[in-house]
Design a protein around this nucleic acid. Sequence first.
DNA 1: GTGAAAGCGCTAACAT
DNA 2: ATGTTAGCGCTTTCAC
Lengths: 333, 333
Amino acid sequence: MTIVDVARHAGVSTTAASKVLRNAYGASPAMREKVQRAIEELGYRPYAAARGLRGQTYTIGVMLPDIRNPFFPEILDGLTDTLRDTDYHVLLGPSCDNEKDEGKLTDAMVDRGMDGLVLIAPVMSQVRLERLANTVPTVVVGRHTRSACYDTVTDDDTTGAALVVDHLADLGHRHIAHIEHHETDPARLAEMPNAVRADGYRKAMQARGLPPDIVSTTYTQEGGYLGTRQILARPNRPTAIFAGADIVAMGALTALSEAGLSVPGDISLAGYDNTSFAALGPISLTSVDQAGHHIGTAAARLLLERIADRSRPTAQIKLSPTLVPRRTTASPR
Amino acid sequence: MTIVDVARHAGVSTTAASKVLRNAYGASPAMREKVQRAIEELGYRPYAAARGLRGQTYTIGVMLPDIRNPFFPEILDGLTDTLRDTDYHVLLGPSCDNEKDEGKLTDAMVDRGMDGLVLIAPVMSQVRLERLANTVPTVVVGRHTRSACYDTVTDDDTTGAALVVDHLADLGHRHIAHIEHHETDPARLAEMPNAVRADGYRKAMQARGLPPDIVSTTYTQEGGYLGTRQILARPNRPTAIFAGADIVAMGALTALSEAGLSVPGDISLAGYDNTSFAALGPISLTSVDQAGHHIGTAAARLLLERIADRSRPTAQIKLSPTLVPRRTTASPR
DNA sequence: GTGAAAGCGCTAACAT
DNA sequence: ATGTTAGCGCTTTCAC
């Protein structure tokens, strides 16, 4: 079942069939009609690999750091909703949280001739990112950089962190600890959402005249659990914990409950991302909403624009977070 | 940067280069050496679309019903761990929970020349499934069927449901309600994991001489919330709820907490899947472990076998679940 | 063991 | 407006 069969069945040339397939210029309505019917009757489907060899594959690749983090599906929904009415299909890479896996995955996506890439909070160096973006249209989500090669969509993590610190400080907390995703690479320190969040925390604490107190782990449930245990093992315990992501707060909750501490009675806890689990009745976690759906929508639009015009100047879209106070934060006793 | 460049750089024919690329028979060690070096020096990467046109794309597609359900990442991990050391890459479709979206996605995967498909709890008809499996090697996860066209990996949902019912009945519960994922299609009624789970519940209740009580919603957090509200609105309330999936239990917890009911004081609650959220300290949900990682591993192995030999008889792998009792279940007052 | 060449299904010049 | 045809990068007979 190839385009040749369609053309023959419709009694036209393959060029004509191809044009109809791609809605390209130069096909009369009558011809469109004939070809469409032939396609229907034969149940023909164009073979993407063959198209890829000549140009587009109509495939957009998405890379995300952790499929377990319930925040990422929000972004994905925004992406797929926007791409639904286009000819493009979205394919997701399995989660990869280190530079090596990221390289392998993006290579694999390039090898498969993908028309565009959406990279969510990638850790690879900017040099690599730009090399990649020069190969295939790319939108980077989460990294606070400006590049001439790729578009970016970020949420204002500095403000988001301040939202939490101010909320807790207003409640009367003086000792607020922060659990961050460990970051050593000096370049990423200024770019990655987790690092910017930690920096926002530091600045907001300073602005309040409070000493910062940071524990480094990872943005996972396990990381939250271990980080909290570390905090609780110390001589003087904070009255509030600001977890850099909801998933981290989930792990923190386990550690706190194991330690026999009540939330917010003994200790307040805030997360980040406002995932659906934060809204769960028995959890009711104070969090920061960064509108994942909008992030996804914006990324998809930027990518489509760039695919259409690879030379248009790059754009940086910055969204603003909002605080969602719930029952895990209260004044200290 | 094509295979021709590599061949020229190595001073051999493209055939030779191709053979080395694919570890095919008929290339001397010396030639392998030369070609490998050329590949390294040129940083050559084979273009998957072009390979696809002649044969394999080294890509395996995975379809899952809901990326928000924290159980599926377990299966995925099993899949990717097993596939890591092969030449295959895994690409995920965005979640799709209805027959139409499933069809679009599987079509897209076939169009992209994928070498194999893993379908997790698909809802499409068996006819369609078999047509698909005749096109491309396919492993179906979760559906309790035997087909001559595709391999299956399932967990014994009947036993799993009985595990929960027996646990609750042993604790002294007489009125145990079940929240299921709505299923109307008569064909799917015997095949889908949710339907088999509901049937297992029914049978286990009957074996205990207890009247079944089923509420139909969906396997989502929202579904659990709405289903539980429905249960609570009725005149006589059950003493225990068996949610068909942990994610459903999460929604149930919200509804119960909103209603001012304590768990397990006022009502016991059990889930299914033993996701990482079930183990969370403040939740500590009794659940059924169906070893998602093993499911993924088994699926990957079956798929590789079938890709290697498309005519080998189909296999049906059935795994056994275990109960993980936690703090949400206790004897009724 | 090695190489020349045909062709996978499609698109895009180019010719009509 | 429509058709002819040369490739895209790779694999795979089939000679040697």
